[in-house]
């Protein structure tokens, strides 16, 4: 009889012990959940740089990268479609007049509706290399278009020395707008004598607008101010 009672007590204590363990496990799970809620929601912002080829996207990306991290991002070249893959620089911190923003910078390949390998032949590339570059550039265009679904904000770069009323420009801004992505229109290359920023501003009057030179760094502070204003 005594042994039976003893056995029941052992089973009861074992039950309590098991129950306690489950409670502890549940409590730890809850605490981890709180931590996840507090810290897990922190999502870095993806800032995409879009535009036609050779408008200065990588030059600007390099400038921003050097300013914020001290390192450059990609290579620039007078040959169109130098950037043929989406370049990503992660965990950059923009600190501007008390504003602090963690972001990933995405330098997109230039978007074009036609990629002709013969254009590269003029820059001294062999036929084979030119055809390879054309194929990679086209893939880059596809990647850039598809990545519009992944960015949280966009810089839309336009060469201020060129006509802004192009099919590509209108389509890019239309796609960004349709996705409700906050966008800043950037008229680049103001260091060049034939730059016409008024024409760019008139072409896209309803957007935040910055004119700058990615090459010299002129007006870059203004861009940071717009980013801070737009994304704060």
């Amino acid at each position: 009889m005594g042994m039976r009672r003893n056995g029941q007590l052992t089973a009861y204590l074992y039950f309590l012990h098991e129950n306690r363990n489950q409670q502890v496990v549940r409590m730890i799970g809850k605490i981890l959940g709180w931590f996840r809620k507090i810290f897990g929601k922190r999502k870095d912002l993806n800032l995409g740089i879009y535009g036609s080829p050779n408008v200065g996207k990588t030059t600007l990306a390099n400038r921003i990268c050097v300013d914020l991290t001290g390192e450059s991002m990609g290579t620039v070249s007078p040959i169109p479609h130098e950037t043929r893959k989406v370049q990503k620089k992660e965990n950059m911190t923009l600190k501007f007049r008390g504003f602090r923003l963690m972001m990933n910078l995405l330098d997109m390949p230039g978007i074009a509706v036609k990629v002709d390998y013969r254009d590269f032949l003029e820059h001294g590339l062999s036929r084979e290399d030119a055809q390879k570059r054309a194929r990679e550039a086209t893939r880059g265009v596809v990647d850039a278009v598809k990545s519009m679904d992944k960015v949280d904000a966009a810089l839309f770069i336009i060469d201020a020395t060129e006509d802004p009323y192009t099919q590509v420009n209108i389509t890019i801004i239309g796609n960004i707008e349709a996705r409700n992505i906050p966008v800043i229109v950037v008229a680049n290359k103001i260091d060049l004598p034939n730059a016409n920023t008024k024409r760019v501003r008139d072409a896209f009057p309803n957007y935040d607008f910055v004119e700058l030179s990615a090459m010299t760094g002129e007006n870059l502070e203004q861009l940071y101010s717009h980013i801070a204003d737009k994304l704060s």
Binding site: D116, A134, R135, V142, T171, G174, N175, A178
Partner: peptide, 13 residues
């Protein structure tokens, strides 16, 4: 001729 043409889809709201 090996020239690529891309039709960028225009996303409608």
């Amino acid at each position: 001729d090996g020239i690529y043409y891309v039709k960028i889809p225009f996303e409608q709201r």
